[in-house]
Structure formats: C-alpha cells, structure tokens
Design a protein around this nucleic acid. Structure first.
Length: 569
RNA sequence: UGCCCGGUAGCUCAGUGGCAGAGCAGGUGACUGUUAAUCACUUGGUCGCUGGUUCGAUCCCAGCCCGGGCAGCCA
C-alpha cells in the first residue's frame, strides 16, 4: 500500500498521484457517522463528464494528518492539467467495504486474471488489478505480465507508447509494482497465450523499485523464507497457498457431507498431561518477579487462570466429549508443540484435523482415514490442476504419478508385529535395531512405505508401552488399538487409535502412567455415563499439504513458520 | 539437543596466504509480437561477527551468530 513518504520519493514533481493526493478526506472535511474521519472513501468524479468512475479509495490511518488517495484514473481525468485537476469538483460518499471492491454499480467491476484467461470471447471493456511480474519492451509498446494471485498464470497486457504516462511511468515499471489496467480483452497476436489485454489506461498504484527482492529468475526456498512477506507473490508460494486454501475447504466438505459436527476445542488448556510432548506455557505472571508460595516456588494460583495453563497440543480429549454427544465430530485448528525439533517436517505451530467417532472401532477408524486422505488428493487433483502441474514440473517430477497411484490402490494394512517381522527378515543393516517393543524408526517407516509396500501403509496394534494411556488395550494385554498412517516421502501423516472406553481398564492405564484421576475426572465420567466404543485420529494439515504438493519442507507450506529460534513476521 | 554441510555483489554461485570474479537483477544504448526475450556497455563488495597466527587473512586456526540436511521427539 502506498504511504505518503513513498509518494514523494523519487518521483517527478507533477505526477498525477501528487496532485490527486490533495483530494484527501481532510480537504473535504469528511466525517463518519460517529464524527471520526473514515479510513476509506469512495469519490465519484462527476464533473469530468465521463461515465462516472470510482475514484478513490484509501484514506488515512487515524493518526497521520495527511490523507493519501489512491485513485482509479479515468483516461480523461488523467489528462487534465495538474492545476485544474486540483479544482475538479467531486461528490464524495462514504464507503464501508474493503477498498476497491466496494465500487458502486456504475463502476466497471474488476476482472480477476483467472477469469480473463478463461474468457469465452473477447471483451470490449475489462478492468484488471494486480502486480507486475515482468515487463518486456518492444518498439512502440511494452508487454507487461500481470498476476493477481487468482491463478498461476498471469495475463499479458499490451501498453502502447501512445498512452499518456508511457514514458514517465509504464516504461519504468519494475517487477513487483501494483497496477491497474482498463482496456480490451483481445485474441493474442503472439504465441503462448490465447488472450491478452490492450491497455487504454495503465496506472501504477504502488511502485516497486529496483530493490524489490523477487526476480524473474528462480530463487532458493531458503532465501524466500527470509522474505515471507513477499514470497506469496512468487509462483511456487502462490500455488502452495491456493492449494492450502482449497484443501482446508475440502476437509470441511468431507466431514460435513458425512454428518460430522465441527467442534472448536480450546486453544488454552490446563491439562498438562495430554501425552503429546512439550507444551508452551500461557501466563500473565511477571517473569522477573513472579508471586511466590511460602515455600519459594512460583505461585501459579495467582496466575490468570488460577493454575498453570498451556497452549493445546491436541483437541482429542475434548473432541471425545463431543463425540459422546454428537456421535461424529471433528476439529480443525492450530496446535502447538514446544519441542526442540529441527527437521523439515516439524513446526512449533501447525494445524491439525482430529475426527472422533462414537460407536466406531479401529477398523472403522482406519477406513475413514483412508477415505479422508483419498478425498483430499482427489479434490486437489480436480480443483488445483494447474498448480499441481507446476509442482510436478518444478518441485517433484514424480508427484502426479504418485498421487494417482495412491488414489487407485487400497492402502496397505500391517500390524506392528508383522512390520517387525518384515523389517527383521528383509536383510537390511539397520542403524537402529529392529526389536518387538521398540519404536519404529524413521528408516523403518520409510522402508515400509517407500520400498516394501510402495504405497501408504497403516501400521496398527502397537505395543502398549509405546503409546499413551487413552488407547484401548487389546485382548492380548500387550498391544493397544493404535494406528499410524505412513506415506512415502513424509513418513507419519496420521496417528490415531480406538480409545479405551472401559472405566476400570482406563483407570489402570492412568495409574500405570502415573496420572491423577482428579485431573481427569471429566474424562473418566465419559466412561461412567453411557460409555461407547469410539475412535479417532489426528492428521497433520501441513504434512498432508507436503504430500500433495511435493514441497519437502514444512516451513514452505505454512504462511509464517514457527520453529525453534524463529518466529519472524 | 546431537552429527554433518554452508555463509563472497540485490539473487545464484566460482575463487585465492599478495589489486575481489561470473551469470542474472539494476542503469545506458541497440534491436525486437516479446514469453525467465536478445545483444553491447555499465553501476554495485564490512568476502557473517570477534579474536588469533602471519610482513600481509576473504582464504589458515579458535569462539560466536545465522541458514540448511540428517537423527531423536511427533502430526
């Protein structure tokens, strides 16, 4: 967005922007209904005589006394001499929408680049807004590619040298500038695209100078991570975040179509024993001089919640409550783990989907997980085709064949005992020895999914000693109804289980894990009153996104990654 | 947290115990319905930081900072 300082720096003195800037809200003495100056206006130019065009737009930020008007120029207005421009009468009306989109009906609506590219026929009038990806000059005109994020592909705009601001602005436009174009959509005379736009007016909304970090050439992902505020404007990250959005939608669609109820489980929790790793503490106590107990310990009874509180590591226990009432539920929200994990597939803040189903056993749980994963892949294949093809071309050549292969085949299922057997007999020299009772290591999981089964595989019935207290104990007394879904390239993407619904067995398990029944009285109550067999799992949203896009680092599928030592932006 | 690799122009990277290099980006010019356009010329440097060795360190050594990979923990 334009700021006053940017408006003055490095510009010729008599640019239209500078003149139009004087038509600020203050000059007109605008006041909103509450007496405050509005932060946004729409100004309609009446005197210019042309079809009324929306002219304004964004005002001040509330403290700065100088309003900045970013305007949508009409060609006839732009050509006004600067002196007269400042005297043009305006009719001003307050707008309440988010900027340019609140244009009145008399203004030409904005067309997204995606829609323009898929136009069925030529258009006499089109209005585009977006950011310059590249400019190529020809004799007498320039090619300017605009992208507005609506699609991977941008649209080519032809800006003729006869445009009034060609020499002063258009020919100096750099990659990254935000611009606005009015013109015609016509069949392209060149190769490589069906449509292009011949500009009748071309306005720079916000210049980007030569220091704009994104170039037309490829950048490393490490560099782009350092400019996370600009990387969504790159091809790769635009595609990643479009897919992320679509995937979030598909998740809701999957569950809603099946009658699952969306539950918002708390983000702040006071149970510190959920069994899923280190927690972030939430506190309002003074870190330097906290209140102390008579014994000299920090007195958390004086903290905000009257006890220790944390950010959630899982919504499962609360989801079980709701499944015990609404039958089938799911959560989808942020999750926090304070582990010092420095890998390409761990983040301190990530999003997790946790369905929980009453009257459901491990078998049903595994079946749902498979249907769920396949639904997400199928949805992305169908609705994000262009973006996935981009990933297949530049990120992972095998992506599409792998996704299609996963869609076509049933997932393999393999008990932990069978897995140990397979790993022990395959003749490999494992870095970590394979032994019943030990965790499957990364190398083991990868071997199962990538080499032995060559497809997603669900490993189930793990040794009781490896898993948390709430998992249902099998009849053998040694294993629990746990399941992990392993996928090629990522490893574990889902972890879940059938929950222990028998009160006495659960109490024994809690005692064994040294958990206090007092802290979990409500969890035990679920087994006292109308208990049912139930099951659920957790899917790491970012890991699913990694699998679907082929992007190999979790930091590149989340807008602003939080990892140990890093919480920028 | 452990092990390993890296840090040189805005970006991607070469390089050397003795004047700091290329491609791209930026600038100037030429050419052109171009597609990461092309061609010529050109601006641009705390060689991560601190200390040490040395006549001399971007280079060798130590410590630190930052980034990445792998492992553990997990989703």
């Amino acid at each position: 967005m334009w700021t006053p300082s940017q408006a003055h720096e490095g510009r010729p003195p008599c640019r239209p922007q500078t003149q139009w800037k004087t038509h600020s809200a203050q000059r007109f003495g605008l006041r909103g209904r509450d007496g405050a100056r509005p932060s946004m206006y729409e100004v309609r130019n009446v005197a210019a005589g042309a079809a009324p065009g929306l002219r304004v737009v964004r005002g001040r930020d509330g403290t700065n006394s100088t309003a900045v008007a970013i305007w949508l120029p009409h060609p006839r207005v732009v050509r006004q001499p600067d002196e007269s421009a400042s005297r043009l009468p305006f009719r001003v009306c307050l707008g309440d929408g988010p900027g340019l989109r609140s244009a009145p009906k008399t203004s030409m609506p904005r067309t997204l680049v995606k829609a323009a590219l898929h136009a069925a026929s030529a258009m006499d009038a089109i209005h585009l807004q977006g950011w310059v990806r590249t400019r190529r000059d020809a004799k007498g005109f320039s090619f300017i590619e605009i992208n507005d994020g609506s699609s991977l592909k941008g649209i080519q705009v032809i800006a003729d040298a006869s445009l009034p601001n060609y020499a002063t602005e258009i020919a100096r436009t750099h990659t990254g500038a935000s611009i606005e174009v009015h013109g015609k959509l016509v069949p392209s005379k060149g190769q490589g695209q069906q449509w292009e736009v011949v500009a009748e007016s071309f306005t720079i909304i916000g210049e980007a100078d030569a220091t704009y970090p994104l170039q037309k050439k490829g950048h490393t992902l490490e560099f782009l991570r350092e400019i996370a505020h600009l990387r969504p404007r790159s091809n790769l990250f635009g595609a990643v975040f479009r897919v992320r959005s679509r995937l979030a939608f598909a998740i809701h669609q999957f569950f809603q179509e099946r009658g699952f109820v969306y539950v918002h489980t708390p983000i702040i929790t006071a149970s510190d024993c959920e069994g899923a790793g280190e927690l972030f503490r939430v506190t309002t106590l003074d870190p330097v001089r906290p209140p102390l107990t008579p014994e000299g310990a920090v007195d958390f009874a004086k903290d905000f919640f009257g006890k220790k509180a944390y950010l959630t590591v899982s919504g499962q226990l609360e989801a079980e409550i709701f499944a015990s009432a609404l039958s089938n539920v799911y959560t989808f929200g942020p999750t926090f783990r304070a582990e010092n994990s420095n890998t390409s597939r761990h983040a301190a803040e990530f999003w997790m989907i946790e369905p929980e189903m009453a009257f459901c056993d491990l078998e049903g749980n595994m079946t749902l997980a498979e249907q769920f994963v396949k639904h997400l892949i199928r949805d992305a294949r169908e609705h994000c085709a262009a973006d996935l093809e981009f990933f297949a071309k530049f990120v992972d050549k095998e992506l599409l064949t792998r996704l299609d292969f996963v869609l076509e085949r049933p997932f393999q299922r393999c008990s932990y005992a069978e897995a140990i057997d397979v790993l022990g007999k395959c003749g490999r020299n494992w870095e970590h020895p394979v032994k019943w009772g030990d965790n499957l290591q990364s190398e083991h999981e990868r071997f199962l999914a990538e080499e032995h089964f060559k497809c997603p595989v669900t490993v189930y019935n793990y040794p009781r000693t490896l898993k948390p207290f709430y998992m249902r104990v099998n009849d053998d007394g040694k294993t629990v109804c746990a399941m992990d879904l392993l996928v090629p390239g990522i490893g574990e993407i889902i972890g879940g289980s059938q929950r222990e619904e028998r009160l006495e067995v659960l109490r024994e398990a809690m005692a064994h894990h040294q958990l206090s029944e007092k802290d979990y009285w409500w969890y035990l109550d679920l087994r006292r009153f109308g208990t049912v067999p139930h099951a659920g799992f957790g899917l790491g949203f970012e890991r699913m996104l990694m699998f679907i896009t082929g992007v190999s680092n979790i930091r590149d599928v989340i807008p602003f990654a939080r990892t140990p030592g890093s919480a920028d932006f």
